[in-house]
Amino acid sequence: MSVIVVLAVLAIVVWLVIAPLRHGHDERAELRAASEREELEARKEAKYREIRDAELDYRTGKLSEADWRALDRSLRAEAILLLRRIDDAGVS
């Protein structure tokens, strides 16, 4: 029984490790671009959360209407800038 387990594990290990080696090619430039896009996506998500948080802060009485409107305007402007950059970077 132990021998079967060992052989099965060995086969899986070899298959797992060897299989991707056939696709080796230099992709540093591609990686850099992907990282940029991911970074912009992350910043967009954070900005959206900030807009939602600000609205919730206003609606639960922690921000005055004037403060919220000013903050919301600037946050939305920043979010739009991020959306432009994401589109320029070409999200797939």
Partner: peptide, 12 residues
Amino acid sequence: GNRGLVDSGRRA
């Protein structure tokens, strides 16, 4: 920047 090796490392 070798994707094959990186994938192989992950699958290790």
